[in-house]
Every structure is written in structure tokens, then in C-alpha cells.
Design a protein around this nucleic acid. Structure first.
Lengths: 225, 225
DNA sequence: CAACAAACCGAATTATTATTCAGTTTATTG
DNA sequence: CAATAAACTGAATAATAATTCGGTTTGTTG
């Protein structure tokens, strides 16, 4: 019963075929690489199929030989991103969380996430596109779900307080904050970049700490009294 | 020497005229209101001039009577946003910062910022558009500059450590974090929303604290030893 | 090397939208 | 109530970009 590739949904967004020839397999990658570079350079609005083709030195016709439409290329880029993130989150889950303090976990986890952001080009326009283009929205949601649920798993192992629902809410705050600040971090020069990364760790550590047992969010409350 | 309106730059993005008749002044506002609503509902990509006109019950021609082009409408929306933010930042600057603890300041400052985000429709698509559309980029930069420099002023008054440059870097982290999390906050229901707001305050408080004199970022370092 | 398929080409087609403009209606004013 | 300007109309135009398709070149295979 050969049905390896049957999980594929959204036919209109998947590559036309699994390329037969070596050359073709390379082309598919080239298209994605060039598209990522152009996305970074010119932004989503000026990213046209003609531009991609020209930059690659092939014709638009050839481009459409590999992808059924423009969104399919973006979709493939989004899948790449999601895969990287999946690996990273699995890495995090395999940390010996139980033997770590929350701060130790945060330190390692943020470093791991930073590596993903550094490796991937065009993170900002890509993630914006995943949100803005209805056909790609599902990928964005999958991404968020992945990160948030894995984080919630880890939060449980760290013995944080609160229901599953609550831990997932904290996961979203973690995600949004980390995403926003890492975008700054990767665009800054070394010294500033390093300091901003420290700031991020400080903030996320405070977030996690505030949900640890034995913390009654005391610092703020007492001030307000 | 009457030259009231001479600060206007970018003729192509400003309204065609200061409307003479009452009706017309209302129209200008209506256009902005409808555009903001549609921006929220359909997103930037499906926001067409025809749609705006139809939704308002006027013709495209009329739309162009008020604004020279589509970007000018977005630009006006961006200006509105920038004005709100300017008022908010001035408010913050007028806090009696010197008599407050950092945490007290953060509490009030975040509340003030939340009010801006709650009052404005379509914050996410609007800010994305300001970033993505070259003609509007200047507004985005003005916005960032406004917030960051005002924050840096306040940080100085709070006696935070570091050069002006460093305080502005911290201002950016403050801005990015607050923006990202407030977008979540305004989209959540009451209970979750309230908790996320608390989380934001916790994180920002930690950020500010870590730059206060007498703090050697001890908590994280000691853990890593 | 013939036959077949994979890759490729790029001009032509299609679709979508912003923008214009020649006129019409509505308000203001002397 | 003319006369003038403000508001308005919507079909026509212009520009841009995605997508198609008939045909060519290149690679593979028996």
C-alpha cells in the first residue's frame, strides 16, 4: 500500500512533481533560496514571479514548471521555516528540564531559538506573509500551535502554576516576545545584539519565574501598595 | 506672512485640500474610519479603492477628490496613529517619574500604552503597512524615534545605567516587546487579557530593573555558574 | 540513435486595480 | 435666482503582474 505522500493537502500549493532529474531537484532549492533572498531585499510587495525568474536566469515558464503558482513558492518557504522550528522545539523538549532551574532553561532555550532566526533569511517578511496571505495562514497557525504546545509541555515539567490553558497563554506571550526581540537581535551589530539578547533572557526569565510556585508576583504588588 | 501649512511635505500623500464644506470635512473622517475598519476586516491586500468607495456609498471619483491616491489614505491613518502615540508619550513624560519606583512607572506607562492600542482599530495591519510600504516608511521611523527617545528621556530620569545610546537600545526592546504583547492583549478576552497584561508588566519591569543602578544582572549569572 | 519525457522558453492572454476625466448634481453667495 | 465652485459620478484608461501554452531544447532509456 504505497501512499507515502498522501498527507499532502492543498494540492494547489504543493510543488508540481517530485523532480526526476538531479538538475531539477537543485532548481527547486535554487528557487527557494533566491526567493528568500529577494523577499529580504525587495519585500513581499515587489516580489514578482518575473523577478524571481530573471534573478535565477530562467524563464517564468520554467518557474511554473516547478510550482503551480506564486503562493506555492511562499508556502514551501513557510514549510522550511516550520521544519526548522520543529527541530528546535524538539531539541528544547529533550533538554533535561527537570534538573534545570527556570533561568537555566531560558538561557538555553533562547539560544536555541536565536540559532533558528540567524540561520533563516527573511524571517520578518516571511512571517508577515504567512499571516497576511490567507492561503498560507494555516502554516502560521501550525507554527504557533507547535511552539506554544511544546512550551506548555516544558512549563509543566518546570512545575509552573496554572491550568494547561493558562500555560499555553504564557506560551503565547513567550512566543510573541521572543519573536519580536529576536528580530531586533539578529539585525543589530555584535555588542548591541548581545546586550539585547541578554535583555530578552531577563524578560523571559521574569515571565517564567512569575509563574513558578512560591512566587506571588510580589515585587509589583508591594510597590503598588 | 501667512504660511501656516508649509510644514507639509510629500505633497502626493497629503489630502487634496482642506475641505470647505461641513459635509466634506465629515467625508474625510468617514473615509479614514471606513478604511480602518476594512483594513481590519479584509487586510491590506484586499483593501481596494473600489471597496472603500462602495462601503462608503460614494464613487471612486469622489474618493480621489479627497485623497490623491490610495497611499495618501493610509498615510493619513498613520498620522492619526502617530498623533495618538505622541499624546501618550507626552503624558508619560509628564508623570512624576522622579518620585516613582521603576515598577510604578512601568505600571502606569503600560496602562497608558494599552489605552492607545484599545482605541485604535487595525493596529496590526496598519503598523505592518507602515513598515512594508516605502512611501509610508518615514512615518514608521518617526513613530519608533518618538517612542524610543521619549523612553530614553524617562530612563535617564529613572537613573538607569548606560549611555544615551544604550538607553535608546533598551527603549527599542521596550517598544518591540510592548507592541507585540499588547497586540495579544487587545485580542484576548477579559481574563486572559488581564493576565497577559500582568505578564507584560512583569517582563518590562524586569527589563527596567536590570538596568537600574545596584543591579548586576545577578539572578541569571549566578544560576549559570 | 530513435523515441519519449523532462526542462525550458517567452510572447500572448487574463485579471486585477489604481487612476483619470468629461461631465452632472448640489451648495453657496452676491 | 444666476453664477460659481464644491462634490460627486462611473465608464474608460493605464499599468502591473500572474498565469498559460504552443513549441524548442536537453536528457534518458531501450
Amino acid at each position: 500500500m504505497p501512499r507515502e505522500r498522501q498527507e499532502k493537502r492543498m494540492n494547489a500549493l504543493n510543488p508540481r512533481r517530485q523532480p526526476i532529474q538531479q538538475r531539477a531537484r537543485e532548481r527547486t532549492q535554487q528557487i527557494l533560496d533566491i526567493t528568500a533572498r529577494l523577499l529580504e531585499e525587495v519585500g513581499i510587495d515587489d516580489l514578482t514571479t518575473i523577478l524571481i525568474a530573471k534573478e535565477l536566469g530562467i524563464s517564468v515558464g520554467s518557474l511554473y514548471h516547478y510550482f503551480p503558482n506564486k503562493h506555492a513558492i511562499m508556502y514551501a518557504l513557510g514549510e522550511r521555516w516550520l521544519e526548522e522550528m520543529t527541530i528546535a522545539m524538539n531539541d528544547m523538549e529533550s533538554f533535561a528540564v527537570e534538573t534545570m532551574t527556570p533561568n537555566q532553561f531560558v538561557d538555553k532555550a533562547i539560544n536555541r531559538m536565536l540559532a533558528v532566526y540567524k540561520a533563516q533569511r527573511a524571517v520578518l517578511p516571511l512571517t508577515q506573509a504567512l499571516w497576511a496571505i490567507p492561503e498560507l495562514r494555516r502554516l502560521d497557525e501550525e507554527h504557533d500551535y507547535l511552539v506554544i504546545s511544546k512550551l506548555a509541555n516544558i512549563f509543566e515539567r518546570l512545575q509552573l502554576k496554572g491550568s494547561r490553558n493558562e500555560l499555553e497563554r504564557v506560551g503565547r506571550i513567550y512566543l510573541e516576545t521572543t519573536h519580536a526581540v529576536l528580530l531586533s537581535v539578529v539585525s543589530q551589530k555584535t555588542v548591541r545584539s548581545k546586550r539585547s539578547l541578554e535583555d530578552l533572557k531577563t524578560m523571559i526569565a521574569a515571565l517564567v519565574q512569575s509563574h513558578a510556585p512560591g512566587d506571588s508576583q510580589a515585587s509589583k504588588e508591594s510597590d503598588q501598595a
